Deep mutational scan, measured.
Amino acid sequence: MTEYKLVVVGAGGVGKSALTIQLIQNHFVDEYDPTIEDSYRKQVVIDGETCLLDILDTAGQEEYSAMRDQYMRTGEGFLCVFAINNTKSFEDIHHYREQIKRVKDSEDVPMVLVGNKCDLPSRTVDTKQAQDLARSYGIPFIETSAKTRQGVDDAFYTLVREIRKHKEKMSKDGKKKKKKSKTKCVIM
């Protein structure tokens, strides 16, 4: 069974824990209790493949930012979460993405942009803004509501699919490099 290491990042209060708990335990946590770091595991079937999701729910508070490099190193894919009623959390996505790329030393890291709290009427981040940002990053965008469960499975499952595509691409690139290195030079 394939294991996928997913990391949920975003500013404090955007609903990272609520999304994760909704996926794992099928219930909505409405009281806000700032996370330092929590880890969850769940076995699911995605596109006919049974897999184990190892999900790291991270601290959004700035005082825990020193811990970010460590979990970013171990993560295979990242859910970059903002709240649709919090423009600052949307603007912060850029910083999370840049930090992930720096730590992973790669421009090509599996990510999904997630606009959470889409059940709320007080939207300050337009869907088109988020779609445009995701398009500019070359990553999928999904709106979710941890409260109603809308888009929750889709967000995590899409990230797994992005990781699969990335692994497939990397193995193809690896095979191309191996083929090239088999060419021999004969000096007579």
Rank of each mutant, 00 (worst) to 15 (best):
T2Y: 10
T2R: 12
T2S: 13
E3Y: 09
E3L: 08
Y4E: 11
Y4G: 08
K5W: 00
K5T: 09
L6D: 01
L6T: 04
L6N: 02
V7L: 06
V8L: 10
V8F: 03
V9Y: 09
V9E: 03
G10N: 01
G10C: 02
G10E: 01
A11D: 13
G12P: 06
G12C: 13
G13Y: 09
G13R: 09
G13D: 14
V14I: 14
V14P: 04
V14L: 13
V14Y: 08
V14Q: 14
G15V: 01
G15N: 01
G15Q: 01
G15K: 00
K16L: 02
K16N: 09
K16T: 08
K16A: 03
S17H: 01
S17C: 04
S17T: 14
A18F: 00
A18T: 09
A18H: 03
L19S: 14
L19Y: 06
T20Q: 14
T20V: 09
T20I: 11
I21L: 12
I21C: 11
I21F: 13
I21A: 14
Q22C: 05
Q22Y: 03
I24R: 04
I24Y: 09
Q25A: 09
Q25D: 03
Q25R: 14
Q25F: 08
N26M: 14
H27W: 15
H27Q: 13
H27N: 12
F28S: 03
F28C: 04
V29D: 10
V29H: 13
V29S: 11
V29R: 12
V29C: 13
V29Y: 08
D30C: 11
E31T: 09
E31K: 01
E31L: 05
Y32Q: 01
Y32V: 01
Y32C: 04
Y32N: 05
D33A: 11
D33S: 11
D33C: 11
D33H: 14
D33R: 05
P34K: 01
P34A: 07
T35A: 05
T35W: 00
T35C: 15
I36C: 03
I36H: 03
I36R: 01
D38Y: 07
D38F: 02
D38Q: 02
R41H: 08
R41D: 06
R41N: 08
R41G: 08
R41C: 08
K42Q: 12
K42P: 02
Q43E: 05
Q43M: 04
Q43G: 04
Q43K: 08
V44I: 09
V45C: 09
V45I: 11
I46R: 09
I46Q: 10
I46D: 11
I46C: 06
I46V: 09
D47Q: 08
D47P: 05
D47R: 06
D47I: 02
D47W: 03
G48V: 07
G48R: 11
G48H: 12
G48S: 11
E49T: 11
E49I: 06
E49R: 11
E49Q: 12
T50H: 06
T50W: 03
T50K: 05
T50P: 15
C51N: 09
C51R: 06
C51H: 07
L52K: 12
L52D: 06
L53K: 04
L53Q: 11
L53E: 08
L53S: 07
D54Q: 05
I55P: 02
I55F: 06
I55G: 02
L56G: 14
L56D: 08
L56T: 05
D57R: 00
D57C: 01
D57S: 02
T58G: 08
T58E: 02
A59R: 01
A59E: 05
G60Q: 06
G60W: 06
Q61I: 14
Q61D: 15
E62C: 14
E62P: 12
E63T: 11
E63W: 03
E63M: 04
Y64W: 15
Y64L: 15
Y64R: 03
Y64H: 12
